[in-house]
Design a protein around this nucleic acid. Structure first.
Lengths: 148, 148
DNA sequence: TTCATATGATACGGTTTCTATATTGTATGG
DNA sequence: CCATACAATATAGAAACCGTATCATATGAA
């Protein structure tokens, strides 16, 4: 049991590294830095979101976020829009066009994942997905703990 | 079924982002760039390994790898040793001392993962670990596909 | 052996990115 | 209306990245 847990953690670490690597290569193809791609993911998860809260969430300096958003906007990945209620604030939106291009870059991984999932039943897939979501939650908590 | 697979993929993406974020914060604590930490992971997975093959694996320029290894060595994370057979070559080794420090930085996440795993049986944990390993394999294949 | 070529790692320099601080424009409370 | 706070960005100096050159070593052929 203990051994199984240890092996699972190792598998999780290996997977994290490999997915980072995959993202790095996808970023290279799309002419985006690793941090840019992470932010793009964060934006699509939390959109609409402001640059400042995005910077907090990503653990980056606000001025760094300005540079990242400049690149993302220049590349046509996102747009900045003024918040109607608070005109100091900006909300970031993803543009669907290049998002589709990104989708295509992930298509190789996507179909491989389809093949993997084919080998499981619905209940098993839900078990796994639930585990992944719990792990995400643990990651959030552990990250917050480190921020203090 | 199709919907379950889609949700699983979304959960996987969210988890990847969150783990990257956690790593970023851990890197900040340890005074390491994100890429440095990724390389440190790769080194512990594939050690002993040379700078050039590490650069290939990480998708980085050899000169960039020199800078990363300079930082890792300066910080006491790894050492460079000359290869006895090919004296042009260098092999990188991790130093156990600071590795323990790293272990401590991950301890928060580690115990949260223990709690999560407590809720599963051995057979379920093995099912999940196997899925993670398959996903890692898919990530490797997809990465290689992008390299051409 | 000796020489030409290939290879591994790093040095160097120009370009890009990061980040601390200052600045601008807007909101909010007194 | 004014003082203060806040969001975003401009600016500039430091750091990192990466194409190219360099140095040391290896390999293969004559």
């Amino acid at each position: 049991m203990r051994r199984t847990v240890t092996e699972l953690k190792a598998a999780l670490r290996d997977m994290r590294v490999q997915l980072s690597l995959l993202n790095h290569h996808i970023g290279t193809r799309a002419d985006l830095k690793d941090a840019d791609l992470d932010c793009l993911d964060l934006i699509s998860i939390y959109a609409p979101i402001s640059p400042s809260s995005l910077a907090k969430r990503a653990g980056l300096h606000p001025a760094t976020m300005t540079g990242i958003l400049d690149r993302l906007e220049r590349g046509g990945w996102v747009v900045r829009e003024r918040d109607a209620n608070d005109r100091r604030a900006i909300v970031i939106r993803v543009l669907p066009e290049r998002n589709r291009e990104m989708f295509h870059l992930y298509s190789g991984m996507d179909s491989l994942m389809d093949e993997i999932c084919d080998g499981y039943g619905v209940d098993q897939l839900e078990l796994i997905a639930d585990f992944l979501r719990r792990t995400t939650g643990a990651g959030q908590v552990a990250t917050e703990q480190l921020e203090r």
